[in-house]
C-alpha cells in the first residue's frame, strides 16, 4: 500500500504471505469478469462493422487495450488515414507510461529486464491498479505474470466469444455490464482511501478536477486519453507537493 508504506513495513516481518503466480491469478479474476463482456462487445462491434475476424483477433492479441481498440475499429470504418489511427492509439494509451513508471518503483529489484519487458505488455488501467494497491512493498514476477495473464486471457477469450458466439446477447444485459470496470475501480479505491487520508483527498480532488475538465469548453475538447493523463499528473503532483514527506515517504 504505497501511501501507508510506513505502517505496513513495520508489520512486514511478521506476516509475509507467499505471493505466487496463483495469487496473481486470483487477484486477476475481478478484472477478467469486467473484461469478458467488454471484449465480447468489441468482438461484436468489429464483426458488425465488417472488420475481418483475423484483424480483430490480432488486435486483441497485440494491442490489448480496450478503449483504443474500439476507437481503432471506429476509425477504420470511417476510413480514417492509418497514421491518424496509430496516433490516436498512441495518445489514448500514453497514460500507461505513467503507470509503468509508478510500477517500476514497486517491482522486486531482482526481476531481469526481459521479464519486465514481458510483464509490461500486460499493464492496463486495471492490472496496474490491482498491482499497485497490493499490500506488499515489492511485487514478485510470478504475481505480476499471473495477474496480467489472467486479464489477457479473459480479454482474448471474450473477443473470440464476441466474434463467433455472442450475436444474440440481450441488450438489457449488455447495457448493465458497462459499469463493471468502473465498479471494480470503486471497489479498489474505497478500501485503500479508508486507510489513508492523503490518498482520499487526492482521489477526490482528481475526480473533481477531471469532472470540471470534461465540462469546461476549453478542456472538453481534449480527447479522453489526454484529459485522463492531465488530471492524473495534476492530482499526483498536488499530492506530492502538499503531502510530500508524510504521504509519500517509505
Amino acid at each position: 500500500m504505497p501511501i501507508t508504506a510506513q505502517t505496513d513495513s513495520s508489520t512486514a516481518c511478521t506476516q509475509v504471505p507467499k505471493v505466487t503466480f496463483f495469487t496473481g491469478v486470483k487477484a486477476g479474476v475481478p478484472i477478467a469478469v469486467g473484461y469478458a463482456p467488454i471484449a465480447m462487445a468489441f468482438g461484436l462491434l468489429a464483426k458488425s462493422s465488417g472488420v475481418p475476424n483475423e484483424v480483430s483477433i490480432l488486435m486483441s492479441l497485440v494491442v490489448f487495450a480496450g478503449a483504443s481498440q474500439f476507437v481503432g475499429v471506429n476509425l477504420l470504418v470511417l476510413g480514417t488515414a492509418c497514421w491518424e489511427i496509430v496516433l490516436a492509439t498512441f495518445i489514448l494509451n500514453l497514460r500507461h507510461f505513467l503507470m509503468s513508471a509508478a510500477l517500476s518503483q514497486r517491482v522486486e529489484r531482482s526481476i531481469t529486464k526481459p521479464w519486465l519487458a514481458a510483464i509490461s505488455f500486460g499493464i492496463t488501467d486495471e492490472t496496474f491498479t490491482v498491482a499497485s494497491l497490493r499490500p506488499e512493498e515489492r511485487l514478485s514476477k510470478e504475481f505480476l505474470l499471473g495477474l496480467n495473464l489472467t486479464a489477457f486471457a479473459a480479454w482474448n477469450i471474450g473477443t473470440w466469444i464476441g466474434l463467433f458466439l455472442a450475436q444474440g446477447l440481450p441488450e438489457a444485459v449488455k447495457a448493465s455490464m458497462g459499469i463493471a470496470l468502473y465498479a471494480m475501480f470503486v471497489g479498489l479505491l474505497i478500501p485503500s482511501v479508508k486507510k489513508s487520508r492523503p490518498a482520499l483527498v487526492i482521489a477526490l480532488v482528481t475526480m473533481l478536477a477531471h469532472g470540471i475538465m470534461r465540462v469546461l469548453p476549453v478542456t472538453a475538447e481534449l480527447s479522453t486519453g489526454w484529459s485522463i493523463i492531465l488530471a492524473t499528473v495534476g492530482g499526483a503532483l498536488a499530492g506530492a507537493i502538499v503531502y510530500g514527506e508524510e504521504g509519500g515517504g517509505g
Partner: peptide, 30 residues
C-alpha cells in the same frame, strides 16, 4: 519506464508523485 527505471534512485518529490499516481489515476478513470 518499467524496464529502464526499476533501479533508478529518484528525488523524494518524484517518488511521492509516483506513489500518488494510483489514487489520482483511479479518480480520473472513475
Amino acid at each position: 519506464p518499467l524496464t529502464l527505471m526499476q533501479n533508478a534512485v529518484m528525488p523524494q518529490l518524484i517518488r511521492s508523485f509516483f506513489r500518488f499516481i494510483p489514487y489520482a489515476a483511479l479518480g480520473a478513470l472513475i
